[in-house]
Design a protein around this nucleic acid. Structure first.
Lengths: 333, 333
DNA sequence: AATATTTATATAAGCGCTTATGTAAAATTT
DNA sequence: AAATTTTACATAAGCGCTTATATAAATATT
């Protein structure tokens, strides 16, 4: 048998660990009922206890008390009715509502189970207090903290700290393509394309084999590296022949949005493009990509109908064509 | 909105509470991935982390490391293969085995996720340490205690203490039938009949309406009451006419087995039967009920073929007939 | 060497919920 | 009063596992 890998993951696997423990507890509860000959399913326990205490509740009320979904309670009611442990009747003043209560048999069944509940309660207290560790109290506090500020919010906060610590523009490092980085090209671009469009077959081919489809055809690929997040952005130049280059597959991971990675990358690509036998630098995109288009406009690209007519049919999703104009860009510098 | 009923149940609802928290954590984890644009399901997390650490594992190895079932891992592998995040190949030296490892894309996907994992880890640590309460540490201890001695074992121990405290024979109180106790007759008998046989239609009718089917026909029902467990046993006398009475539906709850409740009850019934215009006291049972037959033999019942012939066809499951003999019983006194 | 047992994996069915959705009744708005 | 929205519940489908079972390969036993 192997060691427990969750131990190595520590707090990161807290969720998985909690799930594992809760499943163990529920499985044990089932064994307890079985051992004492009770034809009762553990999932019914909270509802039976609620009915014992409150006498009558409706389906929705029960779901609110117990923190379970309404359909869950609806199902429990059907099952407990079949076992004749509860009576279900329409509410007199509101015919949508159902009034649930224990039947005479159900009340007796609960009475008969109560000593078992007491024993389980003592067992749970014993477990909780093992080694002076007030597990139950800690769990209550944990739940309260989680309700106050969710794991998502807390994670977002910590992530922001991680991504922004001492970040200045010079710390985004632009590096050239090498085969070991090929998959970053795939992962980074797949992310935004899948989010905004659907990944077409032509995309998949280019993303999977960038070396063959871009580099070996005289194109270029760059990556942007963040000091703590690693490689977070990429951009390619496709060699279309006759000195025409298409700027394409520019993407920044969602984890690095808002850090100006896109702009740094784009400016680097434009700058590097100057050392190519450049005749025409253009790009194709979709009107949906507002932020990107704004970035392109800001960095010397202008909308161009001619480009649209000559190259626009390559991709289904492209309805915007832009061409880089050295003049405009130079005056911006 | 109603208050949280689990609060009222305290430690008894520890399992339900753990389940609720773990589901909340997992749901939040899914939101974290979604927020950062990762097309990754939280359930894959432990496997991806394992592959990142160990590089290659088989399906069974992974299931052992992670504490999940082998089919679960088998399914994860299919899903991650479809996403091209892992490579699965047959083991060279054992063609049953599959060697699982991250693909190039998978390794990059993990690299890209690692900052998120770090942030979640910090968030979990923060939650765990909230209000100086080392929840994670407490959970580890709780898990260890549970592994050392299960909830079932602990519950059994506490139950035994509850059932046996200061129990002497006089504390089992025999009481006569009254309508409010009718359901105990049903619940107690259903338990053992369902365990040993199947509940026939005739059983259900008698158990559901004991007053109509037994009392009003000149029969009798008694209950045995335990000082802390409540009503735990029952026994009936059926009036068969002409001074013949059938001892039937004698049962003791599994929670009260081993406390001599059956014997006390039986002796009480035999004693009370003397005040009836008694001609013949008999019972029908099944050879499977060895413990019961032994108890009957010990208390003056002898096997009787004549009874079998005249009454044995009433129930399908009966293949043993016994008759009480005053003589034998008297000599035993 | 033949046979039985064990091991690794896949597949199917089930379980305890969930979310999504539909229907009818009640409450609210117009 | 009529139309709209909300509420209560049921049903269906799905999800993340589980247990049970089948299959094939490896290992141990005879």
């Amino acid at each position: 048998m192997h060691e427990d890998f969750l131990d190595e993951l520590g707090e990161l696997a807290l969720g998985s660990r909690l799930k594992r423990v809760s499943e163990k507890m529920l499985a044990d509860a089932a064994k307890v009922y079985e051992h004492f000959g009770m034809a009762i399913q553990p999932k019914w326990f909270t509802l039976l206890a609620l009915l014992d205490k409150k006498h009558t509740v409706s389906v929705v009320e029960a779901s609110e008390y117990l923190g379970l979904s309404q359909p869950a309670l609806s199902q429990f009611c059907r099952q407990l009715s079949a076992k004749e442990l509860i009576n279900v009747a329409a509410d007199k003043s509101d015919s949508r509502k159902k009034v649930i209560q224990l039947s005479a048999k159900g009340r007796v069944q609960v009475q008969v189970m109560k000593p078992i509940w007491s024993a389980v309660n003592l067992a749970a207290i014993e477990l909780s207090e093992q080694s002076n560790n007030q597990f139950y109290q800690a769990l209550l506090l944990f739940e309260a903290s989680l309700a106050e500020k969710s794991l998502l919010q807390r994670s977002q906060h910590h992530f922001k700290q991680l991504a922004n610590t001492q970040l200045s523009e010079e710390q985004i490092n632009i590096i050239e393509f090498k085969p070991t980085l090929a998959s970053y090209f795939d992962v980074i671009n797949s992310q935004w394309i899948e989010e905004m469009f659907v990944l077409e077959e032509v995309d998949k081919r280019v993303l999977r084999y960038p070396q063959k489809n871009i580099i070996e055809k005289g194109g270029k690929i760059w990556f942007a590296e963040h000091p703590s997040l690693g490689i977070v952005g990429t951009c390619a130049l496709l060699n279309k022949g006759n000195g025409a280059y298409e700027l394409t597959k520019m993407g920044v991971l969602k984890t690095a949005r808002g850090l100006k990675v896109g702009e740094i990358l784009l400016q680097h690509v434009i700058e590097q493009a100057q050392s190519l036998p450049l005749n025409c630098l253009f790009l194709l995109t979709n009107a949906k990509c507002e932020a990107a288009i704004h970035l392109y406009e800001k960095n010397g690209f202008v909308h161009d109908k001619e480009i649209m007519d000559s190259f626009g049919r390559s991709y289904q999703r492209c309805d915007v064509a832009m061409r880089w104009t050295q003049e405009d860009f130079a005056t911006n510098l």
